[in-house]
């Protein structure tokens, strides 16, 4: 089994998995029917991506593991998503802020992943990039609406950005598997995406009449499986059926 490639795919896919789960929680509870539909749509896109990645990972694993085993039967420390995507839907500003800060990264990441030496990853990236371009548009538009809306919405959006900012730096960290994949021209060198990311995010925040957080203190750990307390609860839901009714077909 190609150990590093397997780990690398999980690292990418877990972001979509956990963010998709978060967005799915909102279904039926959005501030308007239109935003409800849009959030569900994003969740659907993300789970679609997850399936492509995990089906590929299952093939690489080459044992009995299925996409669902990989998605739902790992232990909490084995999920390698960034901390950003597991943050809860505190309010709509947090949902949008989380989405925005991830989307800008995600689009840049997929743009590079298209060039991967790995044919399957490149093909998945090409498919995903269309969806993620829409996600960026959605979340960016909403950051602008909320930032440059009422004073209340501005405050809420600013608070969300300030709180979530601490999780942005981790997007540009590399695990050992990441480094190995970069050296084989399979993986994306995320360090190279960092400067353009902050420039883009800062420009958009300015346009949204929001302040760019000054804090230089960042949180990390997700990529190594050390998560915030929020993830455990999310996994309890995600894994419930597979744990309560093991080894069954659905």
């Amino acid at each position: 089994m190609k150990e590093n490639l397997y780990k690398y795919i999980l690292g990418i896919a877990d972001n979509s998995l956990i963010l998709g789960q978060r967005m799915g929680e909102l279904c039926g509870h959005g501030p308007s029917l239109e935003t409800d539909i849009a959030c569900t749509n994003i969740s659907l896109d993300l789970f679609g991506q997850v399936r492509s990645y995990f089906q590929y990972a299952a093939k690489i694993a080459g044992d009995k593991r299925t996409e669902d085993d990989i998605a739902m039967l790992r232990k909490e420390r084995e999920y390698k998503n960034v901390l950003l995507v597991e943050q809860p839907n505190t309010n709509f500003a947090y949902t949008i802020g989380r989405q925005f800060l991830f989307d800008v990264y995600h689009l840049a990441f997929l743009t590079e992943l298209q060039k991967s030496n790995d044919f399957t990853l490149s093909a998945i990236a090409k498919k995903c990039i269309k969806e993620v371009s829409y996600h960026v548009r959605f979340s960016t538009d909403w950051v602008k609406r909320l930032g440059d809306g009422t004073s209340e919405s501005n405050e809420k959006m600013q608070e969300a950005i300030n709180d979530l900012w601490t999780y942005t730096d981790e997007l540009f960290h590399q695990t050992e598997a990441d480094k190995a994949m970069v050296s084989e021209s399979i993986g994306v060198d995320v360090i190279k995406l960092k400067e353009a990311y902050y420039k883009r995010v800062n420009d958009l925040l300015e346009e949204a009449t929001l302040e760019i957080p000054e804090s230089k203190w960042f949180q990390k750990g997700g990529k190594e499986g050390v998560h915030t307390e929020h993830l455990g609860y999310l996994l309890s839901d995600l894994q419930y059926m597979q744990r309560a009714y093991p080894n069954m077909e659905w």
Partner: peptide, 18 residues
Amino acid sequence: ISRAPTLRRKVALLAKVQ
């Protein structure tokens, strides 16, 4: 939605509710 037993079922349920 958050507790669907498989990814396939989760996607189908999301699409249905949508």
